[in-house]
Structures are given as C-alpha cells and as structure tokens.
Nucleic acid binder design. Structure first.
Length: 234
DNA sequence: GCGACAG
DNA sequence: ATCTTGTCGC
C-alpha cells in the first residue's frame, strides 16, 4: 500500500502535471516519463531560445519565461504567471512543485522556442529525470538544465578561465558538467534535459552566458519572477 | 543507522 | 526558495 505523505492539495485535475497524492505516485510518474526522454544532438538551426524560472511569496508561486533571439540575445518576449503552491519541496521531485507554473509561463510566450533552459537539473538526477527532462518531455521541446550546485555525483573544479569544464559523474557515467561561464566565478552545473545532448547543452550554456554567470534567458526569467513575487513592475 | 538532498 | 545591509575586493 502507498503511504500518504501529506495532503498535497486537491486540484481540479486539469493541470499539465497532475499533483501526485503520494511519494510513490510521483516516482511512478517520473519512471513513466523517463522512457520518453531522448538525449540526441539538437538537429536544427537555433533562432529563438527561452529561459524559465520560479519565485515564491508565501504560498504563491510565480513563473516567468523570457524569449530571446539567438545569437543576438535580444529579449523579444516574456510571460509571467502565478498560482498557489500545491506541492512541497522534496529533493528529486522539484518538477511537481514548479512544473505547472513553468509550463504555463513558457506557453504564455506564444511562440515555441528552439530550446528552453530551466533552473535545475535534467539528466543529473537520481532517477535521470530532473525538472528539465520532465518538462522537456511534456513540452516536447529541446531543453537542458542549469543548476547552482550538483544534486548527485562527484565533480572536480574546472579551470579558472571562462569555458573550462569538468565532468559531473555518478559512478562510471557522465551525467552533467561543471561549466565556468565567467572567469574566476564559481561554475554552474549543466545537464541535458530532452532532445539535446550534454555537449550541445554546454555549448549553448556558454554562448548565452556572456556578461554574467547565468545564461541570459534564465537570468532574466529569474529577475522577472523575483520582481513579480515581490509585487513590482519588473 | 547516518548524512546528503536541484529550488 | 526565503529571511536581509553593509561591506570587502577585483
């Protein structure tokens, strides 16, 4: 029997990501979605890219997505949405907490980008289905994740110069990469999400992070959601 | 059993 | 994620 961890809400059942009632159920959803994840090289010319992130204000989640052209990196669109928090933060199950708002934010762009960057991990997850992979499958779009720190695995420090990398390994397999996007600044951790491979993900993480440590679409989405959560104009 | 554990 | 000002350093 599945033990009920807690009352995680009673949605009307019309979300892109149904709210699991138990831990077992959430993991079962991940194992199902995992079968659809494909990490192949990106086979298309990149013109439009997006970044999405979430911020909180008590029991409300704000999701923001920013659309930019590439390689110009000019902002050509954005969307901000909010909704009540329906799932707790549980390491390994982040997609169930932030997925709904993030999907709505990306949809709000009104344009399907060539790929999306999410704040968190993709393949570098205990079950190989982190938030980025999870949402990539639901969006059926190429996506990769960029995180502040690894969740699992061991990694060495990349060289101090921008562009240096160091493999994030879980046993024998490379699950992600520590990437120095800015000289002398701590690295970000990149992992493929869906319909893109690690090397290509790293390439784009670097080509979209010029002045700052965080890839521009993600950085701006972060600022947008943050501003919204604090009731500002953005 | 103990510690770790994206945001 | 979030609570929070100034401050040290390149």
């Amino acid at each position: 029997m599945g033990e009920i961890v807690s009352g995680w809400g009673c949605s009307g059942g019309r979300e892109e990501i149904p709210v699991p009632a138990t831990l077992e159920e959430a993991v079962a959803v991940q194992e199902e979605l995992r079968q659809w994840v494909r990490l192949d090289p990106l086979g298309r010319n990149v013109r439009y890219i997006a970044g999405a992130d979430a911020a909180y204000d008590r029991d409300t989640v704000f999701g923001a997505a920013v659309l930019m052209d590439f390689p110009g990196l000019r902002r050509i669109g954005s969307a901000v949405v909010k909704e009540p928090v329906r799932f707790p933060y549980l390491p390994g199950l982040l997609a169930f907490r932030e997925g709904p708002v993030l999907l709505r934010a990306v949809a709000g762009l009104g344009t399907r980008p060539d790929f999306v960057i999410f704040n968190g991990h993709g393949f570098a997850h205990p079950r190989r289905i982190g938030l980025a992979s999870h949402l990539g499958v639901l969006l059926d779009l190429p996506v990769f994740g960029v995180a502040d720190r690894p969740m699992i695995g061991v990694v060495g420090a990349p060289g101090p110069e921008r562009g240096s990398t160091s493999s994030l390994r879980d046993g024998d397999e490379v699950i992600g990469m520590a990437v120095r996007t800015k000289e002398g600044v701590r690295p970000v951790y990149v992992s493929a999400g869906h319909r893109i491979d690690l090397a290509t993900s790293v390439k784009f993480a670097l080509s979209t992070a010029c002045s700052y440590r965080i890839p521009e679409p993600l950085r701006q989405a972060h600022l947008l959601s943050r501003a919204a959560s604090r009731g500002q104009s953005g």
